[in-house]
């Protein structure tokens, strides 16, 4: 490995940034396209997929839960004075549910997942790459892409939407708690007022985009880790780059989703 690492370095130094950028885009497209081929082919790594769902989903519940509660609480406290001025306090639950479910909940949760899950995947795969663990799988005739990448991307694609639903629910509970600081409103009443302002065309696009958020977070984390080169420094770089790129990708996807929803 030392030989190869040393030998590869001059080549990387000579590549121009423009060429590197376009090569990177091409590589990432091939890397992602491979997922759609491998995901259907046996053997299916069900046990590893479940383990990843547990690691990424269940273990993120406290973090996104606390965040969701605080978002709902703060959003309600800050929005209330403006609505009270116009005598529209009764619209507060509807406004909170709209902004939380359609935009803030999905984007904030996706950003948290990009930070927590994306960096974890990038660091884990990066570490496996530089310590030759991925090559060790390859030489024992185990498909490392299927075992490491497919399972993780599937897990994030499934878990991020569930975490977002959870965040939205807890966020509404936070909002309910904030409402009760100044007024007295029952939980059932709060939820019925909050949800009456939402219809299927609001919820469905917001829900669909969360799968794309989950997919890009997993895929970018895997891609950055898989392509880590050199020593332990590159593990940190892979994790950092995974977070930055995945966060940016979430915003870009959100912008595209909003435009598409607007057109429909």
């Amino acid at each position: 490995m030392d030989d190869l690492t040393t030998l590869n370095q001059p080549r990387e130094e000579r590549v121009s940034p423009v060429k590197k950028f376009f090569t990177g885009i091409g590589d990432s497209i091939f890397f992602s396209a491979r997922f759609f081929k491998e995901v259907w082919l046996p053997p299916y790594q069900v046990r590893e997929f479940i383990r990843q769902c547990y690691e990424m989903g269940y273990r993120s519940v406290p973090l996104v839960g606390i965040t969701g509660f605080i978002i709902g609480l703060v959003l309600t406290i800050q929005s209330r004075p403006s609505l009270v001025q116009f005598g529209a306090e009764s619209l507060l639950p509807g406004m909170i549910s709209n902004s939380l479910i359609k935009e803030i909940g999905p984007v904030i949760t996706a950003l948290i997942c990009a930070g927590k899950i994306g960096s974890a995947i990038g660091a884990e795969l990066g570490s496996m790459k530089v310590t030759e663990q991925i090559e060790a799988m390859e030489v024992t005739a185990i498909n490392p892409y299927k075992y490491l990448v497919v399972t993780r991307v599937l897990a994030t694609t499934l878990m991020v939407p569930l975490l977002i639903i959870f965040t939205d629910t807890i966020g509404l509970l936070g909002s309910y708690a904030a409402m009760n600081i100044h007024s007295d409103i029952g939980l059932t009443r709060f939820f019925s007022v909050a949800l009456i302002h939402l219809d299927f065309s609001d919820i469905f696009p917001a829900f669909i985009k969360t799968f794309f958020f989950g997919f890009v977070i997993g895929m970018i984390g895997c891609y950055k880790g898989w392509n880590a080169t050199g020593g332990t420094e590159s593990v940190g770089k892979a994790a950092n780059s995974a977070v930055v790129t995945a966060s940016l990708a979430v915003f870009i996807l959100d912008m595209i989703a909003v435009q598409i929803t607007d057109l429909l």
Binding site: M1, D2, E124, S127, M128, T131, E132, Q133, E135, A136, E138, V139, T140, A141
Partner: peptide
Amino acid sequence: LNEIRMRVGFLFQSAALYDS
């Protein structure tokens, strides 16, 4: 290639044990 790899063992310099 994987059929061949099944018959070829490779011990890496770092041993490359799966650390998880």
